[in-house]
Design a binder for these strands. Sequence first.
DNA 1: TCTCCTATTGCAATCGATTGCAACAAGCCC
DNA 2: GGGCTTGTTGCAATCGATTGCAATAGGAGA
Lengths: 353, 353
Amino acid sequence: MRFSANPVTPCGVSQDAPPSHRPARTLADIARLAGVSTGTVSRALAGSSLVNAETRERIQALAAAHDFRVNQMARRLRTQKTGVIGVVVPLGHERRQHLSDPFFMTILGHLADALTENGYDVMLSRVIPDAADWLERIVDSGMLDGVLLIGQSDQMAAIERVAARYRPLVAWGSSLPGQVHCAVGTENVAGGRIAAEHLIARGVRRIAFLGELRAPEIRARFEGVCAAAAAAGLPAPLQLDTHLASEMMEREIAAHLTRHLDRIDGIAAGSDMIAMTTLRVLADQGMAVPSDVPVIGYDDLPLGLQTVPRLTTVRQDIARGARAMVERLFARIAGQDAPSLVMAPELVVRDSA
Amino acid sequence: MRFSANPVTPCGVSQDAPPSHRPARTLADIARLAGVSTGTVSRALAGSSLVNAETRERIQALAAAHDFRVNQMARRLRTQKTGVIGVVVPLGHERRQHLSDPFFMTILGHLADALTENGYDVMLSRVIPDAADWLERIVDSGMLDGVLLIGQSDQMAAIERVAARYRPLVAWGSSLPGQVHCAVGTENVAGGRIAAEHLIARGVRRIAFLGELRAPEIRARFEGVCAAAAAAGLPAPLQLDTHLASEMMEREIAAHLTRHLDRIDGIAAGSDMIAMTTLRVLADQGMAVPSDVPVIGYDDLPLGLQTVPRLTTVRQDIARGARAMVERLFARIAGQDAPSLVMAPELVVRDSA
DNA sequence: TCTCCTATTGCAATCGATTGCAACAAGCCC
DNA sequence: GGGCTTGTTGCAATCGATTGCAATAGGAGA
């Protein structure tokens, strides 16, 4: 805690000096005090060179003394720029998935960093797309200069519809051929293939894939896993639905494994969170990873470094993806065009497979 | 993915029917179309009983057909209610701590849920309090109906100063005697004592505390640990600074443990994230938990269920805390008074201690 | 038929800033 | 001294909605 030399109150907290005058709420208040018009005050506070340097400083001092700050609502209405970017998490399938899902949070953190560094505020919405026009409501609210979507969920149709007329919109997720909206993501089919090939190289022959297929990303990863298995002449992988809501995930995986563990010898998880939960369940069941059954994840969350054993996974460069999303969004706000980005996934071999 | 029966484009996405008319942007557009005044349109869209049911429906239909949505900026300027709550993460010490810290994210998720359920939007700010008036800028921006602070960091003075005049402000964190701002948190001294007592009951005699003391919460937990040790006639615990930025944490803990492991026989961590990283480091160093050295965390994050061994910890009921913060904030927005809340921490015994 | 009441609707002020344009003074040159 | 530039400042429209009050029409009641 920082203690200053000021008098200290009973709670052990120093009080900075209060402003000596009563606060002013509007430009007009300051204008009256300074004996000028509101226009001049507005220009002075904006640092415009149109106003005399002396008056400008006098007005700024006055504003500071009355700790005046311009009303952003009014300013933004007038200038038609809000300085706010919406970061939206659509939970189409998986309504129970919590906002605290580590993948969301990792990418949200990077997005928030990039946006605040550029002077934008972040408006966070976790929406359950009940109404068909959920995205229209967001983009047409007049509150936002642009929108970033974390994941497409099962809302491709709604996103495409809006993107056709609303430019400053960028999504994290898949780019399908012919898609009009700008998306940043990794090549999920290739990623799935890489994961499976790694398992196969370790001698796995009967792969289980944990994850459900309604989200396009997860479905693509599964397709990659299937392709690799087919190419190696192995039987088709066993696909086991796994919901992302953390409360249910552990029970569900445990049930899957007790039922199917004798029929498989390696696990490709649809995400790192699924993989981490799987490690936990396997430990409970007395199975050793990777010697009894190797496990590979997908995402490369920082948390994967903390597990025992450390998670082998397929890396999506989330930090780079977030930067790319913000770059593309700014380009689109500036009226330029910005194409989708598909990043190559990368195998990260640690200890679990 | 949901496929509808509509014609399908090459990207495999169905196109919903576009609106048949060109979109209307303002109330005045709709008013012209309907042959009424903007006032009537405004009332009609608000569902006011002042306008004839027939006209009301006609206007609503018109608005829907031209997919019109009222400009929130203008509406909010006029009504002086923004419908937005700021959720602010001050990073005073620990500037490098990332927004993706699981504790932040867990509480943020709960706050966001509670706020959106009540029809509020969430504006997220991660601020590094360089300027002395960082909080004034936020509360006086005119964009927010209220502010929730996640953690007080080392900014007690700034928070107290603003809280003295700005009512709708609630913080997560400590309540010090005489404090004017409303805080919701747990009794950290008691929590620290509980943790240490549990270790001591397991036979630990030389406790190490991992965490740095600039944040008031962590400091209080350490005081509790010290009190318990003193009460049991044990030597003073060894306090080891641990930064919260995840990149540094593992290296730092590893360095601490190689230096001091022979002098301690039990570890109380300042937070669950520190505890989880400690488990990971101990596994690397070939130490068994809890038989060689027990480890206890603090927070009870959902992630603690996923570690091997499962984390023994001191529970803060984050969900309840988040609900309490939102309740108190709403009370304050409504002009009522709302006192601070100090919740009792609770020991959660799992496998790590 | 006249008055009064009620159900609708329009008018215009208002929220608090920004900004193009006009106005004005001082200074300069010829 | 008149015309012109330059540097400042004020005026007033504007952003897009909300809302108190006035105005109107039509019907009911006496």
